[in-house]
C-alpha cells in the first residue's frame, strides 16, 4: 500500500489533457491529443511552428475553447464555471508584451491581489519575497513597462504570475524575444527558480537546447499530436520516429561554421 501511494505521489498528474481537438476554420490544430504533466516537474513542450503547442497551452489555461476533450487541473475538470478559480492556481507568462502599459510594474504585479482584497502588508511582503526570488532591483517596481528592458520585463511578468503562489506555471516562449546574452542568464535563473519553487511547470519553447536545459521531461509535438514524451536522453537515444530523429538532429552547433 505504501508503495502504491509513493508511486501515485511520484506520478500524480497535475495537468491532464485528454483527447483534446481544436480546429481553426478548417485547419485541425490539435488532433485528439492526450498528455499528462506530473506534479512538481518541469516539462518542456517543443515542436515545429504550427504544431499546436501554444494552442494547447491556451486551452489548458481556458483562454480559448476546445472542440472536444477534457482538461483536468489537479484532478478538477476545467469548465466555464470554475475557469477563473482554476486560472488563479496557474501562473502565465507570455513571450512579450504581457505587461499592462498603463500600470507600473508593482501595479501589474499586485493587480490580482488587489482584486482579491489582500491586505497591503501581505501584498508588500509577498512582493519582497518574489523580488529576492526573481532577482529584481526594487527601483523597477515604480516604472511603467515602457521603461523596462525586455529581460527585466519577463522577470516582472514571472513575479506577476507567481503572486498568488500558484501550483502550476505556464510559460509561452518566455525568452523567445530576448537577446542571447540576457537569455543565457535568464535561463540559468529560471532553472534555479523552478528548482527552488518545486512547482509544476509547463514551458513552450522552440529551442531544443533550452527545452533540455530547463525541462525534467520533454514533450515533442508534431501536427497536433504528441510525437514523443520523455527525458532528453530517452528521446536522443530512442527516437520514436523518423520525425523525432530529424527534429533532434536539426539543431546546428556553432562549431559547424568553422569546418
Amino acid at each position: 500500500m505504501d508503495r502504491v501511494f509513493y508511486w501515485y505521489m511520484l506520478h500524480y498528474a497535475m495537468i491532464s489533457v485528454q483527447n483534446i481537438s481544436k480546429k481553426y476554420d478548417e485547419k485541425e490544430v490539435l488532433k485528439g491529443i492526450t498528455l499528462e504533466i506530473p506534479k512538481s516537474k518541469t516539462v518542456s513542450l517543443i515542436g515545429p511552428s504550427g504544431c499546436g503547442k501554444s494552442t494547447l497551452l491556451r486551452i489548458i489555461m481556458g483562454l480559448i475553447p476546445r472542440d472536444s476533450g477534457t482538461v483536468l487541473i489537479d484532478g478538477k475538470e476545467l469548465k466555464d464555471s470554475n475557469k477563473l478559480e482554476l486560472r488563479r492556481r496557474m501562473g502565465y507568462v507570455v513571450q512579450k508584451g504581457g505587461l499592462f502599459p498603463h500600470l507600473t510594474a508593482k501595479e501589474n504585479i499586485s493587480l490580482v491581489t488587489h482584486y482579491l482584497e489582500w491586505e497591503k502588508a501581505k501584498i508588500n511582503s509577498r512582493i519582497e519575497e518574489l523580488l529576492r526570488l526573481v532577482r529584481i532591483d526594487p527601483v523597477l517596481l515604480s516604472k511603467k513597462p515602457g521603461n523596462i528592458s525586455g529581460g527585466q520585463a519577463q522577470r516582472i511578468s514571472l513575479m506577476r504570475a507567481l503572486m498568488l503562489d500558484p501550483d502550476i506555471i505556464l510559460l509561452d516562449e518566455p525568452l523567445g524575444s530576448i537577446d542571447p546574452l540576457v537569455r543565457h542568464e535568464l535561463q540559468s535563473d529560471l532553472k534555479e527558480i523552478f528548482k527552488t519553487l518545486n512547482k509544476t511547470v509547463l514551458l513552450v519553447t522552440h529551442d531544443l537546447g533550452e527545452a533540455a536545459y530547463l525541462g525534467d521531461e520533454i514533450v515533442l509535438m508534431r501536427e497536433g499530436e504528441v510525437a514523443q514524451q520523455g527525458a532528453i536522453h530517452q528521446i536522443l537515444q530512442n527516437p520514436a520516429s523518423e520525425f523525432v530523429q530529424k527534429f533532434v538532429s536539426a539543431q546546428r552547433s556553432p562549431l559547424e561554421g568553422i569546418k
Binding site: M61, G97, G98, F100, L111, V112, Y115
Partner: peptide, 22 residues
C-alpha cells in the same frame, strides 16, 4: 494586443474587472 489580453484573462480576473482596470 492579443498577448496583453491573454495575460489579463490568465490572471483569473472576471470580465468586468478586466474591462474596468485594463
Amino acid at each position: 494586443p492579443e498577448p496583453m489580453m491573454e495575460s489579463a484573462y490568465a490572471l483569473g480576473l472576471p470580465n468586468s474587472v478586466i474591462l474596468k482596470k485594463i
